[in-house]
Design a protein around this nucleic acid. Structure first.
Lengths: 243, 243
DNA sequence: TAGTTTAACTCTTATATAAGTCTTTAAATG
DNA sequence: CATTTAAAGACTTATATAAGAGTTAAACTA
């Protein structure tokens, strides 16, 4: 890639931003890696340190990179904190947020339904990994989750780890499959608990549940996970901050 | 206020940020006003334009100010777009978001309940304005809203506008009462429709509804509105983007 | 081993130049 | 002569570069 500072061209710092993103998405720099210093990059690209800095600043705001003063700049990773603060929104009534324990019920391969395929941008009838689990909050089963993944990206996940899945899946995606979740869209509705829901959460059928349908995307915009959660909100709620 | 650039002190640009925020919260600059140019401010404060610029940049990211190249920098206002994009999260099934029409059912003064008072940081039994309304989406009643405001901040709102309230309340707060909503916390649960809910939304009692409890804050962190919405999610959903 | 230095970073501030917007003014047009 | 058009100028924010200060962790020393 060649940078251009001609008259009508895109600003230098934006071109640098693209270039840095490319190096992350293409795996040249993996999550957790330190990237070259601002000075090194500025020399390599023949621009000033401040210009590199502006590009990096915006990527830090997008949660792509992380800066540590005196140490360097790193590619963001999916540690537990990030999972908890960015992607998990259920609090208990006293307002505290804890990562729930998970009990995997099943993990198998199947063909995607028409809807699932469309939401994950797959061709009709493509193979998907299908995971069902319940999650405990404050020692009571509170959430039922159905997770649907393109089998092409998560090869052998169905076979290998049948009921041995870790609690924080996004860390697994990143470390085992090189897939980093960058953003997600969530659609929330209120639904009635089915008989099955009711028995899993030990409450009565028809009880209102909060249904969260999440599609998670990588940095380059590919949808890679469809996750449907049904939560009992008798002692918990979904927390959202509007800025 | 005096700026300090001594050794252990807070960075200049942050001090400037505080100063600019103060001028907005204290009403020296009102929403919609243009603020002095970066050069004017830099001369007034004896720093360089770039330092003022960094302070302003962060305030633009916080939705406090708005920049327009070639024109100037303005205090952010609560236009319809902002209300829709930042504070309204209900979409219809095809994914489009429209501002609902509102029908005010009642608007009166009462004493805050213990819970209401605590959520709005009021003393026990303080006076509040209590508004009830239904909102239509795609020509069907979809949302029931209860809005609770401290009477001390919204004097005579109860009397004056009994059933003549505009659709976008946040614009009213800003223009009539000088109160700008800056951020909000929302808590979502699934609940069963009461008989009253059911008749207002013409569905059956017990139907699951999405209950949204929002507390809205001004720039200086004062809670100024408690809003409880109950939404039918048969044809609509709550949309949240996780970054 | 505890304290000190040092090198490699990022962070802050300053300055210069580019680019966008609006107003004024004067020429061109009917 | 009245009206439109276009160019010039005086603003504004946007981008790029440079220099020095603050932080951190590891190497070095007593």
């Amino acid at each position: 890639m060649v940078l251009s500072n001609a008259k009508g061209s895109i600003p230098l710092y934006m071109q640098i931003k693209e270039l840095l993103v490319a190096r992350v998405t293409e795996g040249e720099w993996a999550p957790g890696d330190i990237i070259p210093s601002e000075m090194q990059l500025s020399r390599e690209l023949n621009v000033s340190q401040g210009t590199v800095r502006k590009a990096i600043t915006e990527l830090v705001e997008n949660n792509v990179l992380v800066r540590r003063q005196g140490r360097g700049t790193f590619v963001a990773t999916h540690d537990v904190d990030r999972a908890l603060f960015h992607f998990f929104h259920i609090c208990n009534d006293s307002g505290t947020k804890t990562l729930p324990e998970s009990k995997t019920l099943s993990c198998r391969k199947k063909r995607a339904s028409r809807q699932e395929a469309s939401k994950l941008n797959l061709s009709n009838g493509a193979q998907v990994v299908y995971i069902e689990r319940t999650r405990n909050l404050d020692n009571t089963p509170t959430i039922i989750e159905t997770i649907i993944l393109p089998n092409s990206l998560f090869v052998d996940l169905g076979k290998r780890q049948v009921r041995n899945l870790p609690n924080t899946l996004y860390e697994l995606y990143e470390t085992q499959f090189g897939i980093t979740i960058h953003r997600a869209e969530e659609q929330l509705r209120a639904v009635a608990a089915t008989e099955n829901d009711a028995s899993l959460l030990s409450l009565e059928a028809g009880t209102p549940l909060l249904k969260i349908e999440r599609i998670a995307y990588t940095l380059d915009g590919t949808p890679v996970e469809l996750r449907i959660s049904r939560c009992s909100t008798s002692r918990h709620y979904y927390q959202n901050t509007v800025l």
